[in-house]
Amino acid sequence: MNLDLWLVFLGGALLSAVLPGAGAILTLNHAFQRGWRKTLPLIAGQATALALMVPIVALSTEALRASAAAWLLLKGISVLWLLFAAYRTWRAPVIMDAYDVVTLIRGSQRFCWGFLTDITNAKALAFLLATLPVFLNPAQSLGPQITLMTLTMVMVDALMMTLYAFIATRLRPYFQSPETRKQQNRLFAGFLVFIAVSLCFIEHPTLIQ
Rank of each mutant, 00 (worst) to 15 (best):
M96I: 15
L14P: 02
L83S: 10
W36V: 10
L10K: 06
L42N: 02
Y174L: 12
Q109R: 09
T27K: 03
F135S: 05
V18G: 03
R170K: 09
G35R: 01
F201T: 08
Y87P: 12
V57E: 00
Q183C: 14
D97M: 12
G143P: 13
K182G: 10
M160R: 09
T147V: 14
S198L: 14
Y174C: 11
D157W: 15
L15H: 09
M161G: 13
F194Y: 14
V79K: 09
L187R: 08
S67Y: 01
A168T: 01
T89D: 07
L59A: 04
I105W: 15
I25R: 11
R37T: 10
N29C: 09
P93W: 06
F9I: 00
K38A: 14
A122N: 07
K38I: 12
F135C: 03
T48V: 11
L42F: 05
L207H: 07
M161C: 13
T39W: 05
V193M: 05
D97R: 12
I195V: 13
I105D: 15
T131G: 13
I105V: 15
R106I: 14
P55S: 01
V54S: 00
R110L: 13
V101S: 15
T120Q: 03
N121F: 01
G35Q: 01
F135K: 06
L192R: 02
S78A: 07
P178A: 03
A168W: 00
T61K: 05
R88Y: 14
L128M: 08
A63S: 07
L83H: 13
L64K: 01
T48Y: 09
G23V: 10
A66N: 00
A66E: 00
I195L: 13
Q109L: 10
I167K: 02
T150P: 05
P55E: 01
A68C: 13
T162I: 10
L125N: 01
F194S: 14
T131D: 10
G190W: 04
N121W: 00
Q140W: 07
L148G: 08
V54G: 00
A44D: 04
L80V: 14
A47Q: 02
G23H: 10
Q140S: 09
L192F: 05
D157N: 15
T48I: 10
K75M: 05
A66G: 01
H204R: 03
M160N: 11
I119C: 02
I43W: 03
L50S: 02
Y164C: 07
V18F: 03
G45W: 00
P205L: 01
L7M: 11
F188L: 08
G114I: 04
L74N: 00
A58D: 02
G107H: 10
G35T: 01
P93M: 08
S177C: 11
M1Q: 12
V102Q: 14
A69E: 06
F115L: 06
Y99D: 13
